[in-house]
Design a protein around this nucleic acid. Structure first.
Lengths: 161, 161
DNA sequence: CTTGGAATGTCAACAAGGCTGACGTATGTT
DNA sequence: AACATACGTCAGCCTTGTTGACATTCCAAG
């Protein structure tokens, strides 16, 4: 029943799935292109953007938390984080309770850059949402969630809306 | 009217847009993770996957065509293409009409690897489509299309379904 | 109080895969 | 004959990922 029903509801040829895969590829390129242009002006890359985004999203987060979310090694993150701290975009405060931890916050400059990047990306996303319509948006979100690794999906869902 | 209607249909807070942005990031990571594992066994990277995908998609395509679709420099593509040809995954045939052109085809081995990669990715996408439901799928596709750069979107739509 | 382990930082080396710039070689086109 | 196009290639640079090794700091358990 399950298999048959699914086939009926969702008849997916190899070709259709390939189209979806290509769409993901092209859309992601569009999705990153606007912030990329801004980052270039600052001599930053996407890794910097991601750090800024998630620090803004969870102010006071620790390096280890950030590591888990970003899914990179501490050496890789550290390189990026160091430049951001040096450039006065990020503030790394020694933890009160546990002084080994560094709690990360955006500075005024960091917030300003993050907003600039977010707005560029949001502009494209808002336009896409509008063009596609409100029903498409919830479908879009549902499929994206279903495409995440389960562990990440749990993390994603646990974040405040 | 336009602005007001849009707002009514689609009330998008900064937070909601940020959620969409994060969803894109996490979903794309899931989306690439399965093929990544296979590629690693072959000593290949995502660049090889993309080349295999689009050569399979448009057999006989030229290097210049591929360059345009992938949006990279010829030096970057050449590095990847050379290893694929050396490894017997891709066949670069001199053009009949214009002998400056190289027409790219997958070999039997290339097709085999491409299928393996595609199936891994399709499995995840099919599961996501099923979990999200058929209406979600068309919404997903609509938003992705709307998120592409216009030039790419035209190209994308022009491809056979 | 000592010690183990966790959290963090840092150094070094390496690889993939982008980029630019320059140059060479066929091959077409005018 | 001259110019343009398609492709390859060499050299060098950058970002961002990796592993491995090691130091520091400091909480917490024994």
């Amino acid at each position: 029943m399950d298999g048959h029903d699914g086939e009926k509801l969702l008849f997916l040829t190899d070709e259709q799935l390939r189209r979806g895969i290509e769409a993901m590829f092209f859309a992601y390129r569009g999705f990153t292109s606007d912030p990329d242009r801004i980052l270039e002006e600052f001599g930053y890359g996407r890794a910097h953007h991601r750090a800024l985004h998630f620090i803004n999203r969870s102010p006071g987060t620790t390096v280890n938390n950030l590591l888990a979310v970003l899914g990179v090694t501490k050496q890789s993150l550290n390189r990026v984080l160091r430049t951001l701290v040096e450039d006065g975009m990020v503030d790394a405060r020694v933890g009160q309770r546990d002084r080994r931890e560094r709690h990360l916050h955006l500075t005024a400059d960091g917030r300003s850059l993050e907003r600039k990047l977010a707005q560029a990306q949001q502009t494209r996303m808002r336009a896409a949402y509008r063009a596609a319509g409100p029903e498409a948006v919830s479908g879009f979100r549902l499929v994206l969630e279903a495409m995440m690794d389960p562990e990440i999906r749990r993390h994603f869902k646990s974040l405040k809306d």
